[in-house]
Design a protein around this nucleic acid. Structure first.
Length: 272
DNA sequence: CCCGGAACCTGAAGGC
DNA sequence: TGCCTTCAGGTTCCGG
């Protein structure tokens, strides 16, 4: 599913079609997609509201409304996408919810695996609790990263995926960042030197920035609101490149599982 | 608190 | 072809 660069792309490309538009109707095709409140209350509160803005926090999207203090919060999880369509377009297969807008730019929330969720909340924390710093905010410094890794025995890759520590990094960009920093994914968090932490900090920002520039990575189930693919995966060095060679040294890339997640790295450039 | 694994879902792809 | 296993970009819950 979308990680930070994909969610950022969706936000950017959705915004001009959605901000200032009124929600004429809400269709929920699978009730459990609405996490809070009930599907009925969710629908009732949103109908007639005007969308005034879209923001991203980590991998969450937040829609603000004109005549309500409440926020519409959304998470796409593994397989969700938001597709824009005109009123005449049929909802694609696996559409779980639809927002009908008064300019005909309806939003289809498509999600084959049914992991995605919607919330209507007074405070963002009701939807996502505690989230770590945004990678591009000023408060995310190398020192802050060092503090987050301090005393942690878990693999550094697992820590990068922990949204309580840093918001927005997912499985693909974690692999890319560790490769760019030359760090073996199973290294305990606390074992990184100050220099390695600095490199990792810079690598995180670089790979995420590159991902945004390329409009996200379309490996499975990621589409931009237009239905187009992103291009970030074409630039990936190791992520999801099983059996291929390291673009730096030519060594065959390794594949292991870290906390159940497929992990790609170069055994030569990222030594134990 | 920290850590690792299972659970939540469905479909596609690969091996035999 | 058919069947079985593995894999897929995430989060949450549960046990140690």
């Amino acid at each position: 599913m979308p990680e930070l660069p994909e969610v950022e792309t969706i936000k950017n490309e959705l915004a001009p079609h959605v901000i200032g538009e009124r929600i004429l109707a809400v269709t929920i095709l699978w009730d459990k997609i609405v996490r809070q409140p009930s599907a009925n209350e969710f629908r009732r509160h949103l109908v007639g509201q005007e969308v005034t803005g879209i923001a991203r926090r980590g991998k969450y999207l937040l829609f603000s409304l004109k005549n309500s203090e409440k926020l519409l919060v959304l998470h796409l999880k593994m397989s969700g996408s938001l597709l824009l369509a005109t009123a005449s377009t049929e909802p694609p297969a696996y559409t779980r919810a639809i927002l009908w807008l008064d300019n005909g730019n309806n939003i289809f929330f498509r999600d084959p695996r049914k992991f995605g969720r919607l919330w209507l909340v007074n405070e963002p924390a009701e939807a996502f609790g505690k989230l770590g710093p945004e990678p591009f905010e000023e408060d995310f410094t190398p020192e802050r990263l060092a503090g987050l890794l301090q005393g942690r025995k878990a693999p550094v890759k697992a820590l990068l995926l922990d949204q309580d520590l840093i918001a927005g990094i997912g499985n693909l960009y974690a692999d890319e960042a560790l490769f760019a920093a030359g760090i073996y994914p199973l290294r305990p968090g606390a074992s990184l030197t100050a220099d390695e932490v600095r490199q990792l900090h810079q690598a995180i920002r670089e790979v995420l920035m590159e991902g945004i520039k390329n409009k996200g990575a379309s490996i499975v189930n990621y589409y931009r609101p237009s239905g187009d693919a992103g291009h970030a995966h074409e630039e990936f060095k190791v992520a999801h490149r099983r059996g291929e060679n390291c673009p730096v040294c030519g060594t065959t890339l390794s594949y292991i599982k870290v906390r159940g997640r497929g992990t790609y790295f170069c055994p030569q450039c990222q030594r134990e």
